[in-house]
């Protein structure tokens, strides 16, 4: 049975009112319910501008964006935000409350939840994300990784169908990145659609299968992450560095003669990954 479309973007063009330059140029995109998708590209490629269309913060100049069939031009941000949770890149741009619990409950209060229920829900989410012990601490006292998890908690708390994470791995160590991957998988298992905006090639190569690559306001490639990320031309256009495994494979291919299918980079990488997992 075909799955529902979570996000449908059709011929989307966008520019800021004070600028002449188009930031998004004819974007066409379909993301199915329950998918995990990475949107990649260099700084200024239009990734953040694109995701701000998903909850109506920005409205298309031409074309349309639909979220579960709802046209974003006809709905307010508050209405769309219930379905699309957007986690911003820098936690310092949203943290304001005096305790972690209050910070987590902020959205629920905005959506008019009963206070007792809101608190129960916030406690549940904070437990899930390993932040329960800080419940009465000031959010400003948390470490970088914890703050980032808190911002995810403060969005997950109202149970949106789609979660969009803007650069979740920037400035995070390996342990935190793994933790984010676990969170993403867990949310996804609950049937939610997860969209991750990043230029962390290794993170995508390791954890996410479906990738969309943007450059200069356009989508330049879409598909299986191993296939796309090992395409030298696409990576050059998007000014991204191929995953290390891909680079290693390219170097090997230069020096060693392989036969048949082995010449295809994605297959080679799949094989290497299998060996590594078996070892």
């Amino acid at each position: 049975m075909p799955r529902r479309l979570a996000i449908e973007v059709k011929n989307l063009w966008f520019k800021y009112p004070e600028s002449e330059e188009w930031v998004l140029k004819d974007i066409n995109l379909e993301i199915e319910e329950g998918e995990i998708v990475a949107i990649m590209g260099e700084n200024g490629a239009g990734k953040t501008t694109l995701i701000k269309h998903f909850n109506g913060l920005l409205k298309p100049v031409k074309g349309y964006v639909k979220v579960f069939g709802l046209d974003t031009r006809e709905h307010t941000v508050a209405e769309l935000a219930r379905r699309v949770g957007l986690v911003f890149q820098n936690p310092d741009h949203q943290i304001f409350a005096s305790t972690v619990l209050e910070e987590t409950m902020f959205a629920l209060k905005n959506f008019g939840w009963d206070l007792k229920k809101a608190e129960e829900r916030a406690v549940k989410i904070l437990k899930e994300l390993g932040l329960y012990k800080y419940i009465h601490t000031s959010p400003f006292m948390l470490s970088g990784g914890e703050k980032k998890r808190l911002t995810i908690a403060s969005v997950l708390v109202y149970d949106p169908d789609i979660l969009v994470l803007d650069e979740p791995t920037v400035g995070q160590d390996y342990g935190q990145k793994r933790r984010f991957a676990e969170i993403i998988y867990r949310i996804n298992r609950e049937g939610k659609t997860v969209i991750v905006v990043t230029h962390d090639v290794e993170f995508v190569a390791d954890y996410i299968d479906h990738v969309i690559v943007m450059a200069k306001g356009k989508i330049v490639a879409e598909g299986n992450s191993t296939e796309v990320l090992c395409n030298d031309e696409v990576m050059k256009e998007a000014r991204l560095l191929m995953p290390q495994l891909g680079l290693a494979a390219l170097m090997l291919r230069k020096h060693v003669e392989f036969r048949g299918n082995f010449l295809r980079l994605p297959i080679f990488i799949k094989e290497v990954r299998r060996w590594l997992n078996d070892a």
């Binding site: 701000k52 909850n55 913060l57 307010t76 941000v77 508050a78 935000a81 219930r82 949770g85 957007l86 911003f88 820098n90 741009h93 949203q94 902020f106 959205a107 905005n110 959506f111 403060s154 969005v155 109202y158």
Partner: peptide
């Protein structure tokens, strides 16, 4: 610019 980002972040959490 920063003010705009903060406004966007809070509106995304339902602030009207």
């Amino acid at each position: 610019r920063e003010l705009q980002i903060i406004i966007d972040a809070q509106r995304s959490r339902g602030l009207e």
